[in-house]
């Protein structure tokens, strides 16, 4: 399984109901179903990913996250998961509120734009970072809302979300001493577990 998914699955209790936003090929939901009796749905818009979900027997719904989660009732899931999609949606703040409404808890992962490589690239070249890990040019990229760990935690504060658990990892999803020491500078990917203001 994808390394970040392996970390996430550990945070999802057996038997829970999960909504996976941008579920990709359905790998996480299929694994959780087979190993932890988890039920739920994945939302996805990429046709090939949707086809892969169907092949795996994963409940996949073709739905654009930018149109919100209005079709899901409040508190209808134990966990709402969104991996590597926060930076690609049009209204991250509104989607975050929706996630907190629909799920009792949320797991969100995103690339950290405050990582020293991004900072160094911008500082030394004066241009938006392009790397193997973030390979897009600024004008042609799905990633329209980059943020740093600090930024994300500020958003959590403003949305009234409580951070229950955080993990900063490198691109291979290892969480060594460096990213623990100074996450916003040395962590490349943030993995957060949060809950809503009223919980």
């Amino acid at each position: 399984m994808r390394a970040d998914l392996d970390i996430i699955q550990d945070w999802i209790p057996a038997g829970s109901r999960v909504l996976d936003l941008g579920c990709g090929n359905g790998e996480l939901l299929a694994w959780l179903r087979d190993h932890k009796q988890v039920s739920g749905y994945g939302l996805e818009i990429d046709p090939d990913n949707i086809a892969a979900c169907i092949d795996k027997g994963v409940n996949v719904i073709e739905q654009n996250l930018d149109l919100g989660l209005g079709n899901f009732a409040s508190d209808s899931f134990d966990m709402v998961v969104m991996t590597q999609a926060l930076q690609a949606v049009h209204y991250p703040d509104q989607l975050m509120k929706e996630m907190l409404r629909v799920g009792r808890q949320c797991i969100i992962t995103f690339p950290n734009f405050g990582h020293w490589r991004c900072r160094w690239y911008l500082a030394s070249k004066g241009r938006m970072p392009v790397s193997e890990f973030l390979p897009y040019t600024w004008y042609n990229t799905p990633n329209i809302h980059f943020c740093t760990f600090e930024d994300f935690e500020r958003l959590c504060q403003e949305s009234g979300a409580r951070v229950l658990e955080r993990l900063a990892v490198d691109r291979d999803h290892r969480h060594g001493w460096a990213s623990r020491l100074w996450p916003n500078l040395l962590g490349e990917i943030g993995i957060y577990r949060v809950t809503g203001p009223t919980r």
Partner: peptide, 18 residues
Amino acid sequence: REIVDALLAARKNVCYLE
């Protein structure tokens, strides 16, 4: 989508493609 949303609310297994 009306059908799908009702099935989601009823917690049925469902796939939806547009």
